[in-house]
Nucleic acid binder design. Structure first.
Lengths: 215, 215
DNA sequence: TAGATTGTTAATCGATTAACAATC
DNA sequence: TAGATTGTTAATCGATTAACAATC
């Protein structure tokens, strides 16, 4: 029953951008869009956009283009944004608090149930209704509250320990902000946000302006 | 005098990871490494690693491998990490404060001179020695303090305005955390950290576990 | 119907992998 | 010297672009 043609990760990483622009169009009340217009907005070629979308189905109509609302909905479903996820954050420092405070994530269906930290000064505080708890309760909390996504915003020294707790608690996906590569089982999905790598890339281009291929 | 073969962005984005692992090795006192061992650590193939490095020069030695310290130094130079950058942050909310607090960036040579915000309640406060100033002073401050990198941690509504200020103040590179694509001149380097896109990618894989090509 | 634009195949381009001679 | 491992060329693989018949 396995699908023949899996979709490559480079395609997947373009989908959120399509989704964002379609959301913008939707809010503007525009209900029709062609691959060519999408190309102008996103910077991807029209050909590439049509290829990308056709990995998932024929959402367009010849001579017309794509219906904005329908395509937005479909992409939302493909990305799994048509449901709610219970999440927790390990590491209640600035970064953890920033993520907890960011309304955009909650709006997209990622519900942050609790923050966890080992610093006694933080435990018991609340970040807009979300309580900071003792990391010793993390495993128990996950099991009791049907948590699917674990976010790591700890220093890198603690990141692997948290990943281990997440693994044995039944977490399905980790969103990792620590500058480390986590060792996890094959079934665990890990998405890294490596800020250092992003900053160093910026620094490279700053120093080698002409010496690269623009994307 | 233009280089014939520019280095592709996919290669550049792997360099910080090499750099990080080499730093780890250095701290462990290991002074020699082969492409095969680096492959095991990074997950890239040995062949790819040798190809990547040879874009910049022959850093290795047949029969021996690479000298850890030398390769680390060279990569640091290539990435532009052998000097200091003056930076400012626009948007002194949690995310801006998190970036300002992250010691790793300062250690790598990215000096955060000041934060800027328009919220009067924040103006005048300090985040570990770094003052929060009125965004009205941003342009003047950049010009007077030789600031090269501008960080954007504002809500997306203000991001383009800040980018415009950065552009006309002589900023060379923007590190953008707002979920928006900035319109800037060709010479401006923009590196985006699109957290939404990262989270949505995680969500995709959570829902389509078997339906993709592992990287 | 005529015009527009998709879906899809074929062509091109670029990136990764394999292989091995060079050489430390 | 023998063994190891690079640097580099050639082969393969995958992703992007071009082209156009299908069709709304």
């Amino acid at each position: 029953m396995e699908r023949e043609n899996r979709v490559s990760i480079t395609v997947i990483r373009r989908l959120p951008k399509y989704y964002r622009y379609l959301g913008d169009l939707l809010r503007k009340g525009i209900n029709r869009i062609s691959s060519q217009e999408l190309s102008k907005m996103t910077g991807f070629t029209a050909s590439q956009i049509r290829q990308d979308l056709n990995n998932f189905g024929g959402f367009g109509q010849q001579g017309y283009g794509y219906n904005v609302e329908e395509l937005h909905d479909q992409l939302g479903k493909i990305l799994g944004l048509d449901r709610v996820y219970n999440t927790v954050i390990a590491g209640a420092g600035n970064l953890g608090q920033a993520v907890a405070n960011y309304k955009g994530f909650q709006d997209a269906g990622f519900k942050i149930l609790a923050l966890f930290d080992k610093n006694p000064k933080l435990i018991g505080l609340k970040i807009r209704d979300i309580e900071i708890r003792d990391v010793d309760e993390l495993e128990k909390y996950i099991k009791e509250n049907n948590v699917e996504i674990g976010i790591i915003t700890t220093p890198k020294e603690s990141a692997q320990d948290v990943a281990d707790i997440y693994s044995r608690s039944g977490i399905k996906g980790i969103w990792n902000f620590a500058p480390a590569d986590l060792r996890v089982d094959d079934e665990m999905i890990v998405e890294n946000v490596h800020l250092n790598e992003s900053l160093f890339t910026l620094s490279y281009f700053l120093n080698n302006k002409s010496d690269y291929i623009r994307d």
